[in-house]
C-alpha cells in the first residue's frame, strides 16, 4: 500500500479544503466554473499575476499538500495531458503577430510541460527527484507508477499530482477531436504518498495502464485477479463514461465525468473522490477506470487497509 498523507484538489467541485468531496459532489453543466481558492494565501500577488491557471492550481495544490505534511518531500512528480495550453497559445499568437523585436519570453518559458514541476521545486526549494509525465489521459496513472517506484526505491514522501487547463480554443475541436458529452474543464489534484501507514489507512494499492486495449473487461478482470479481488469486492467503481459489462454489473458505479468534466487530469480528481468515499464509510475498495481515450486505459485501485 502507498498511503495518502495529504490531498489537495482544485476542480469544478467544491474540492479545495473540503471535508468530504464524495459527499459534496454536484453534477456540473456548461455554466459551471472552476473554483477560485484564495491563491494569495499560497502565492505572492506579484508571482500570481504571471501564472496561468494550470500553474496556479498545481503550485497551490502542492504547497497545500506540503502544509498538511510538515515533513520533507523527496520527489515531485507531475502528470499533464496537454500541459500549459494558455501560455502555449499566447506565445503562438505572440510570435505570429507581434513586432518581431518585441517578443516577451514569459509565455515561452511557461509553455513547457515541466513548468509546473519546476515552479513547485522552486517554491519548495526542493532539489530532489523531479519528473513530468505526459501521456494524454493516462498521465496521472503513469505518474503514480513512477511514484510507487520511488517509494520502493527508498524515498519517504512523494508528491504526485496531475493538472490540465481548459482554453476556449479547445471548444473549436469538438466534437471531432474531443467528446462534447460533458463540459471541457480544468482541474488539478495533488497527493503526498508514503510507505508509512496513516490514520485513515487509505492508499493506492495498485495501478495499471494499457494501450489500444480492445477488451476493457478483460484488462479489469486481470487487474482485479492480480490483486486477489473480484468485482463484488469493489465497493465503488468510478469510471470515465466507460462502456463495460463488468462496470454495469457492479451496482455501485459512478461516471465521474459528470462531476469533473472532461480534461486529461480528471482521474486524479477521481482519486480524491475515491479517498473521501472510503474515508466516510467502512468500505474497502474503489476502482477507477479511466478510458477517456481509446488509446489509453488507466486502472487505479484505492483501498483501506485492515485496522
Amino acid at each position: 500500500m502507498y498511503y495518502i498523507k495529504a490531498i489537495s484538489t482544485i476542480s469544478f467541485q467544491d474540492s479545495f479544503e473540503c471535508d468530504n468531496l464524495y459527499d459534496s459532489l454536484k453534477g456540473i453543466n456548461s455554466k459551471s466554473e472552476l473554483i477560485k481558492p484564495n491563491y494569495k494565501e499560497f502565492i505572492s500577488p506579484l508571482a500570481l499575476r504571471r501564472l496561468s491557471p494550470i500553474l496556479r492550481m498545481g503550485l497551490t495544490n502542492s504547497l497545500d499538500c506540503q502544509k498538511q505534511l510538515d515533513e520533507e518531500i523527496d520527489a515531485v512528480i507531475v502528470g499533464t495531458g496537454l500541459g500549459c495550453l494558455k501560455d502555449t497559445e499566447k506565445f503562438l499568437l505572440n510570435f505570429n503577430t507581434a513586432m518581431s523585436d518585441l517578443l516577451s519570453p514569459t509565455s515561452f518559458i511557461q509553455s513547457t510541460h515541466n513548468t509546473i514541476g519546476g515552479q513547485i521545486s522552486l517554491a519548495m526549494k526542493n532539489h530532489g527527484y523531479n519528473m513530468t509525465h505526459t501521456q494524454n489521459n493516462v498521465s496521472f496513472e503513469l505518474s503514480l507508477l513512477d511514484g510507487m517506484m520511488c517509494l520502493k526505491e527508498g524515498k519517504s514522501n512523494v508528491l504526485i499530482g496531475a493538472a490540465d487547463e481548459f482554453i476556449p480554443f479547445l471548444n473549436e475541436l469538438q466534437p471531432e477531436l474531443i467528446s462534447d458529452k460533458y463540459p471541457l474543464t480544468s482541474s488539478s489534484a495533488f497527493f503526498i504518498f508514503s510507505n508509512d501507514i496513516v490514520e485513515s489507512r487509505i492508499g493506492i494499492k495498485n495501478v495499471h495502464v494499457s494501450f489500444d486495449t480492445e477488451d476493457i473487461d478483460g484488462e479489469i478482470n486481470n487487474f482485479l485477479a492480480q490483486n486477489k479481488l473480484n468485482n463484488s469486492d469493489i465497493d465503488l467503481i468510478l469510471h470515465s463514461d466507460v462502456n463495460s459489462k463488468l462496470i454495469e454489473e457492479n451496482s455501485n458505479n459512478l461516471n465521474y465525468l459528470e462531476f469533473t468534466g472532461i480534461n486529461f487530469s480528471a482521474s486524479a480528481v477521481a482519486t480524491h473522490i475515491a479517498h473521501d468515499y472510503l474515508k466516510g464509510s467502512n468500505k474497502k475498495h474503489v476502482l477507477i477506470v479511466n478510458g477517456m481515450l481509446k488509446s489509453g486505459l488507466g486502472l487505479i485501485l484505492i483501498a483501506k487497509s485492515e485496522a
Binding site: H113, T132, Q135, N136, S139, F211, D212
Partner: peptide
Amino acid sequence: SGVSSHGIARELGISDFVNTIST
C-alpha cells in the same frame, strides 16, 4: 506529445507500455 510517442510505439509494434517524459 503523448500522441507522437504512441505513434513511434505503433511503428515498432510495441503495445505493452507507452510513456512520454517532458522535462
